[in-house]
Design a protein around this nucleic acid. Sequence first.
DNA 1: ATATTTGCTTTCAAATTGCAAGTGCAAGTT
DNA 2: AACTTGCACTTGCAATTTGAAAGCAAATAT
Lengths: 139, 139
Amino acid sequence: MSSIKKRSNCPISCSLDIWGDKWSLLIVRDLIQLKQATYGDLLKGEEKIATNILATRLQMLEEQGIILKAKHPDSKAKVLYTLTQKGIDLLPLLIEIHLWTEKYGTIPEDKKALVKEAKKDREAFINRIIQDLQESIVN
Amino acid sequence: MSSIKKRSNCPISCSLDIWGDKWSLLIVRDLIQLKQATYGDLLKGEEKIATNILATRLQMLEEQGIILKAKHPDSKAKVLYTLTQKGIDLLPLLIEIHLWTEKYGTIPEDKKALVKEAKKDREAFINRIIQDLQESIVN
DNA sequence: ATATTTGCTTTCAAATTGCAAGTGCAAGTT
DNA sequence: AACTTGCACTTGCAATTTGAAAGCAAATAT
């Protein structure tokens, strides 16, 4: 339906065409933290995304193969959103964002430990979290 | 003037509040490549940014301490835009974007060598480019 | 059977974008 | 001195996107 139009072939530009907005990466962030979430879970995020925006973002992220819709094991009324490998692989990007913010902005107290760990051994940190997420994918 | 309103204290959210749009990171990309550019240079980018958007983005990026306006040595009519250290430090982010695109999208022929180099020794690659940019800062 | 929850869709005002057309200034040309 | 050119924006305006709220059908809970 709303397939994306590329402005150029530049990798940055193409990536921004996909998730270059104020919300998409926040959804990815939430799915990294929660591993899986319902529509309602994602609405509860602290940035208070509007329901229509969430709906269109979820559509486009699924279209782009970044997230996956699955049936909730407990209830037919619920939908579970999870990351694909393509979505999981956005983690290094999110970590770089944290490192940049740590240098030039402020990191909330409860995330300082994580950032410290990521700085200490970036590779190990990324691998650990990715491993963790991949396990929950294989359901 | 147009100071940014934070949606939350999350580092991702705060970062997106600053450069979470389709254009800001493209300007940073161009300044990394060109080291310094005039308004006209930036307009010539292949994505064809509109002049009003360029003007407001430059304002905001300067406001956020990511770029710097300097006088052109040749002409008083010209302005040179350069990155600050804060702007230069967005480079690792841009590299991660390239790596993600390499895995899931397509990299234009002329950039494949750079991506390969970045993959081979990320740290060295980043340091080399940053060093290079820092030299042009000290004017 | 009725009420509530869930995952959206619709509506609509407000903000942002994109395009075309200026504007003001400095340097060079005639 | 007037005239053109190039540069860095600014303005105006239509089109798109966003955000807040309300609506809705299907699935559960009571």
